Simulated scan of single mutants.
Amino acid sequence: MPLTTIAGLEIDLVRKRMRSLRLTVYAGGRIRVAVPLQTPTAAVEQFVAARHAWIQKHQQQFATREPRPSLQYISGELHPYLGKAYELRVTSGPGRPRVLLDEFTAQLHLHVPAASTATERAAVLAAWYRQQLKQLIPTLLRQWEPVVGKEAASWGVKQMRTRWGTCNIGARRIWLNLELAKRPLPCLEYVVVHELTHLHERLHNARFWGLMDQFMPDWRTHKAELNRVHLAPGTPTDAD
């Protein structure tokens, strides 16, 4: 896609059938602006110029984010759980595949069949992460639902590429990203509170963030910790 310079920035400018202008900053710093077909150039320039500081901030965040490690799921690798690094110890042999956490030695013991592949070992570890989250989340909901003043009708855990959590307001159902098992526990709490707060306010507007200040005054610290991590290559940060 050809680049154009707007407000001193190189922009991928896309004109398409849509109602409003949309700005996206991607990992690596690429900037994409999508606008309605008949939007005047002057309006696009004004839109980008008004968000110049926001763009620079998110480009800097991407530049300082932790790279995603290349994992082979072999002994000696470090794998995180609730923000702490554990050494993976792989044991091959008969029996049910399983993971055992040893807090004393800071090790994760992964028991798998002798012929298991890296993909199969990754699946066993992912299932363990999911199990851990499903044990933690009910307690966090019981803790935070009275604070927020809203209750989730249901919840689930799934792998998501671009979001730490989502909320279906109509169904009062929240989803939490499986990757949260790897981040510090306060980050998981932040996402739980964030999604519950959407049951008060759908949009990320001043009212929403004011409620977050009320329910969890230190939410910015936990959000900043999550922003250090790439969920997936090319994961964008959007400004609507």
Rank of each mutant, 00 (worst) to 15 (best):
V35C: 08
T197K: 00
A206W: 06
Q72T: 14
G95A: 07
H204C: 03
W144D: 00
E225L: 12
T105A: 14
Y190H: 05
T5A: 09
E66G: 03
F47K: 01
S116P: 09
V191H: 00
A122W: 02
I31F: 06
A153Q: 08
V112Q: 05
R161D: 14
W175D: 02
D238N: 14
Q107P: 07
T237I: 15
K158T: 10
R15K: 13
D12H: 12
M160A: 12
G28W: 10
T221D: 13
L226M: 08
R19N: 10
R22W: 09
R51V: 09
T221M: 12
C187A: 10
L100R: 14
A127H: 01
R98Q: 14
D218I: 02
W219T: 05
T5M: 07
T119C: 12
P36R: 05
A171F: 05
A85E: 15
M18I: 12
L141A: 00
C187E: 02
R30M: 10
Q59Y: 08
G149A: 00
A123W: 01
T197I: 04
Y73D: 06
H204A: 06
T64D: 09
E120N: 12
V124D: 04
T39Y: 07
Y86C: 07
F104V: 15
V148G: 01
H222Y: 10
V193C: 04
E66R: 15
R15I: 07
M212V: 00
Q159Y: 08
L37C: 08
I6Y: 04
T235Q: 15
E201Q: 13
A34L: 12
A7R: 08
P80D: 11
Q46H: 11
A7Q: 05
